[in-house]
Design a binder for these strands. Structure first.
Lengths: 287, 287
DNA sequence: CTGACTTTGGAAAAATCTTTCCACACCGAC
DNA sequence: GTCGGTGTGGAAAGATTTTTCCAAAGTCAG
């Protein structure tokens, strides 16, 4: 039958590939509220996950249980085991992992970064930057440094979907003058610069600002010197239990900016998304 | 009837004086293993406490419940509330901003994603994947899809610093066969695939797996079909208050993988970092 | 020691839950 | 467009649980 040493969570992971769509729906619901979402009667549990009773019944059998009651019992055993443990563990990140596992140390540090970063955002600046990013009269240029190049790329991919007139400036600084040539007042430059701050980026920001371009800077907690020419700048905490810096908070701020911009541009963006979808459907034919 | 704000524990204490001997026996059993000892069927629960079914039935009525099912439900609600505890900690991130400001909604959703993602990581898989990523005997290939291309790029930038023999497979799938040509047993393929899952990536994963390459998949909570050929796969929650998906949790998992790999490779990585630094210092002369 | 009262658990009736079956809907292939 | 295959939920059959009833056991005062 079922190896009793495996948790239901592990079983779900193991069999996830074999689950159908609505079975997954239930699996998700359970994982999101674990294990409470699996401890009521099958009827109730199914209704909460918005699937039918038979779906749940079939799924628990796939997981290796003889029937729902057995599944219920397994969950209960886990709960019991957890309760009788040493002390109730406070943070339940990677619950199965020991406290000192890198996963837990990492999660802890990054959470702090995120808290710090968001606590230090000036909401007015944020809204101001968003207005600027949503201004489709001007061109939006995006650029990053050695490490943040990927973030700039991510920003580009999304902003391109949200609004027209977005340009990604390649990482190779040799080509930047070409872009500057076309920058005019009212344009926007979204710029990433974390330590080690790059002199090239600073020169670029100065040139752009000199031409009347609004610079939005995303930097780390120590602030790139570009802050001085930027109209809006945001500091992201990058502490990490490793030799390099974590850019989670940075990326989170970026996503927040994208989400907010999308909200401002909405009617237009919706149309763009629809058209984009249609285009992807067409390329699907190639497979 | 019953004041819903009271916990069952409190109710028991309050009514304890009015309970009979065997009812107390059950109360003790419940309190000793709370709330698990009250979440099975009344039959089982009674047997565990070594009392009869009617005893339990009478007692829950004394506590103010209409019947055992209601009692059961109350316990479940408590458990559920406990599970969602950490979310309260969201407190006041972007403190000045109103609750409904996008920044706060965003932070809330993403925090949940991160919790979910980390709670569902199987530590053993994580460690296994890290061992694989740290194995410098084989080549490490990195590839992503339309959206995750940036993450693959980020992964590449970092892994390249951590270890030798890393290859970034361009986003253009036309060139992939060239890479597959050189893949051999013992190589590793780090692959990102979130919805809409891309058929090209699936084909690539199949080809690679067929050549004995170990596939490590990073996907979303709904799981890309590539899971089936992957040796290790990780699900990241991507819920976002916007039209697209958030990749914060995905990136976080990625960073955790990089950090862990770096730890495993350390003596060698340290050396690489030093040399890299020296190289950057040289390029600084150009500014 | 008796009798009234309380407590307890066995057993049947009632209610509910679980499973199974089946028809319909959906999707991809030809 | 049609066809085969898979996935889904409604509904009934089957199983279990919950409740109720009642008799037996225990307790205590007189």
């Amino acid at each position: 039958m079922t190896n009793p040493s495996q948790t239901v969570r592990e079983l779900i992971r193991k069999h996830y590939a074999a689950l159908t769509q609505s079975e997954r729906k239930f699996a998700q619901a359970l994982l999101e509220n674990y294990p409470a979402a699996g401890l009521a009667s099958i009827t109730i549990v199914a209704a909460n996950a918005e699937v039918s009773t038979p779906t749940v019944a079939r799924m628990v059998q796939k997981l290796g249980f003889k029937g729902y009651p057995q599944f219920h019992q397994a969950l209960l055993k886990e709960l019991e085991a957890k309760g009788s443990g040493p002390t109730q563990r406070r943070a339940k990140w990677a619950s199965e992992a020991p406290e000192s596992h890198l996963l837990n140390r990492f999660a802890q540090t990054v959470t702090r970064n995120i808290e710090q970063t968001f606590a230090n955002i000036d909401t007015e600046s944020f809204d101001g930057a968003v207005r600027q990013l949503a201004d489709t009269d001007g061109q939006l240029y995006v650029v990053g440094g050695r490490i943040t190049r990927s973030l700039a790329d991510y920003a580009f991919t999304h902003f391109q979907a949200v609004r027209p007139r977005v340009t990604y400036m390649t990482a190779s600084s040799a080509t930047w003058p070409h872009y500057v040539l076309d920058m005019t007042e009212g344009d926007t430059l979204l710029l990433f610069d974390v330590r080690r701050y790059e002199a090239n980026l600073e020169r670029l920001a100065e040139l752009a600002a000199g031409r009347g371009v609004r610079v939005i800077l995303i930097t780390d907690q120590w602030a790139s010197p570009i802050t001085q020419v930027a109209q809006f700048s945001f500091n992201c905490w990058v502490e990490a239990p490793s030799a390099w810096d974590s850019n989670i908070a940075t990326m989170m701020l970026l996503e927040a900016l994208i989400a907010a911009t999308q909200e401002v541009c909405w009617p237009e963006t919706r149309d763009r998304y629809d058209r984009l979808d249609a285009l992807f459907d067409m390329t699907r034919l190639f497979r």
